[in-house]
Design a protein around this nucleic acid. Structure first.
Lengths: 217, 217
DNA sequence: AGATGATTAAAACAATTGTTTTTATCAGGC
DNA sequence: GCCTGATAAAAACAATTGTTTTAATCATCT
């Protein structure tokens, strides 16, 4: 036989581990977050992690890559939508800034807050494995952003554009981490929260746009 | 007797531990960086940490606070100098931005690179202890910056100013971490490096200034 | 020289780490 | 029924964690 349950109730043990691992890693970091922290949070036996994933490292890889994918897809999709919307002309800087900001704020304030926290941790480059994953996954999107910005700001060198793009990402991430950590328990977003996010997006877009199109030096 | 050596050769064991702890914590994080990592790097016995500091937690506190102080002093000094220089008028936004950017770049690219890395780690808030230290130490400086910006940008609400100030800090830190990690081994800065820092400062100031004085929404 | 007190070194401590092994449990196929 | 293979639980593994203990060293003062 291949599986105990065919498809209906895929034993959620594996999913519970993944979910628990995400929050544990976000709260304590990849190295400091222990296997037993995770199995206790998931109400699962200690050996389950080595049964479903080969090792803790493999669990880290899967949790991290799975968390990253929707973020990349959202940012990438927003960029394409913004280009499509402006076609055949080039999009405005503000639109590009919004394509960078909005997905991050909307995902990072909600379901993917833990992933954002982990992203911040990884940025400090403690684990080579995770740093490599980030570079691999985000590489293509970054390149497309910088390429587009280069067309919009032909007076700037590519290194200057890359620096400004980095600054923009740093500004958004910094704000995200400071954003209401209470969201973790909220099952549904209240109107108040949604309005806050909208305001945050507009403010960030304004800051980032201005920084991106600052005069060259 | 009070001390083995009066003052000339204060047993540098303690200093070696502090220095080694800083780089170990920067590379591996506060929790993942082990006592033995540090004692080996400092070529010191394992028990030395508990002899000179009471515990690992106390070592963390001392390393972190000692590393933070010069950064705060530099930023605080730069702000006061910029105010003094413009007096009796108010300083320009660009000058305030430079007071924020320059100390961070100059310290963070050199001797205090490890402290910057640790600052990034702490920002993700894994250890409550370190998060509290950061808030305590940086609180006053942040307030003075926001107060001054409020005067320079009277059309913006205080929360909006605070957000922009956060963005500015995030932008600078993000850039710092991406900055040449090779600096760790350089005993003396080359002219090339110093020129690079100067260019980085100017570019960051331009980005941050533009973001700070973006039109209100 | 002998005694004193600070420092260093070596060894051991219990606790916790990731992982493995070993033993149950539980579903479906013959 | 009984067997098979997947899952689950319990117990144990060696290795590593922060810390303590115990014994050596070393400089200084009397």
């Amino acid at each position: 036989m291949k599986r105990a349950a065919p498809a209906a109730s895929e034993p959620d043990t594996r999913e519970r581990i993944l979910a628990a691992a995400l929050t544990v890693f976000a709260e304590r970091g990849f190295e400091a977050g222990t296997v037993r922290d995770i199995t206790e949070a998931a109400r699962v036996n200690t050996a389950a992690i080595n049964y479903y994933f080969r090792s803790k490292d493999e669990l880290i890889r899967q949790v991290f890559e799975a968390g990253l994918k929707p973020i990349i897809r959202a940012r990438s999709g927003a960029l394409e939508a913004c280009i499509r919307q402006a076609a055949p002309a080039l999009p405005k800087i503000a639109a590009v800034a919004e394509a960078l900001v909005r997905p991050l704020v909307e995902l990072g304030a909600g379901e993917y807050r833990d992933v954002m926290t982990i992203l911040m941790q990884v940025r400090t480059g403690q684990l080579p494995l995770t740093k490599r994953i980030v570079e691999e996954q985000f590489g293509p999107v970054h390149e497309r952003f910088v390429d587009l910005l280069q067309k919009l700001l032909p007076d700037l060198s590519r290194t200057e554009i890359a620096l400004r793009y980095d600054c923009a990402r740093g500004a958004v991430l910094q704000t995200l981490v400071h954003l209401a950590p209470a969201a973790a328990l909220a099952v549904a977003e209240t109107d108040r929260e949604r309005a806050d996010h909208e305001k945050t997006v507009r403010r960030l877009v304004r800051f980032v746009s201005a920084g991106l199109e600052a005069p060259p030096g």
